[in-house]
Simulated scan of single mutants.
Amino acid sequence: MEASLLSTAMLSIVAIGFLVCSWGVLNWVWLRPKRLERLLRQQGFLGTPYRLLIGDMKENHQMTKRAESKPTSLTDNIAPHVIPFIHQTVQKYGKNCYTWLGPRPRVVISEMELVRDIFNKFNDFQKPSTNPLVRLLLVGLVSKEGKTWAKHRRIINPAFNLDRLKE
């Protein structure tokens, strides 16, 4: 009797573990991206619809290969050759749009006033969370956030003054 009770308990634990993992994968692959897509549309952004797991990576890769195969001259607009998928998305959906990099949306902001607001309000627009291992390996200004980022930006800003760069 105790053995069957123990096996039932183990089976229950395995089943619960499987359900928790399944819910996590379902949330990562489908529920969270669809929720983010709905929230972006509510905020006025337009973009490509989410496709399971790969997002827009396949189209992005195909367009990049096509653009690399065509010759370009120095007088051409370089954006369609360097970032063809982003260029086409901006042409189709407007200056503020989004694409999908796997299950994560990538927001494109092209209006200078909004870009200026994003850079000035660094506390409101946080960098996406990264893997803790990547955070340990990543050092420098890229890894700074909040007041530390503002302090370092203020320190290095004079170094990029036009007169100093000419020297």
Score class of each variant (00 low, 15 high):
Met1Ala: 13
Met1Val: 13
Glu2Leu: 08
Glu2Pro: 04
Ala3Thr: 07
Leu5Asn: 15
Leu5Trp: 14
Ala9Trp: 05
Val14Gln: 09
Ala15Lys: 13
Val20Ser: 08
Ser22Gly: 12
Val25Gly: 00
Trp30Glu: 09
Arg32Asp: 15
Arg32His: 15
Pro33Thr: 14
Pro33Tyr: 14
Lys34Val: 15
Lys34Phe: 11
Arg35Gly: 11
Leu36Ile: 13
Leu36Ala: 12
Arg38Val: 06
Leu39Ala: 04
Leu39Lys: 02
Gln42Gly: 14
Gly44Ser: 11
Phe45Trp: 01
Leu46Phe: 04
Arg51Asn: 05
Arg51Ala: 07
Leu53Glu: 07
Ile54Asn: 07
Ile54Asp: 08
Asp56Trp: 03
Met57Lys: 03
Met63Ser: 10
Thr75Cys: 05
Thr75Met: 06
Ile78Glu: 04
Val82Glu: 06
Ile86Asn: 09
Ile86Met: 11
Thr89Arg: 11
Tyr93Arg: 09
Gly94His: 07
Cys97Asp: 03
Cys97Glu: 04
Cys97Ser: 11
Tyr98Leu: 11
Tyr98Met: 10
Thr99Tyr: 09
Gly102Phe: 10
Gly102Thr: 11
Pro105Glu: 00
Met112Thr: 05
Val115Lys: 13
Ile118Glu: 03
Phe122Ile: 11
Phe125Cys: 02
Gln126Ala: 00
Lys127Met: 00
Leu133Ile: 15
Leu136Phe: 06
Leu138Lys: 01
Lys144Arg: 04
Ile155Ser: 08
Ile155Leu: 15
Ile156Gln: 00
Ala159Thr: 12
Phe160Met: 10
Asn161Arg: 06
Asp163Ile: 10
Lys166Tyr: 07
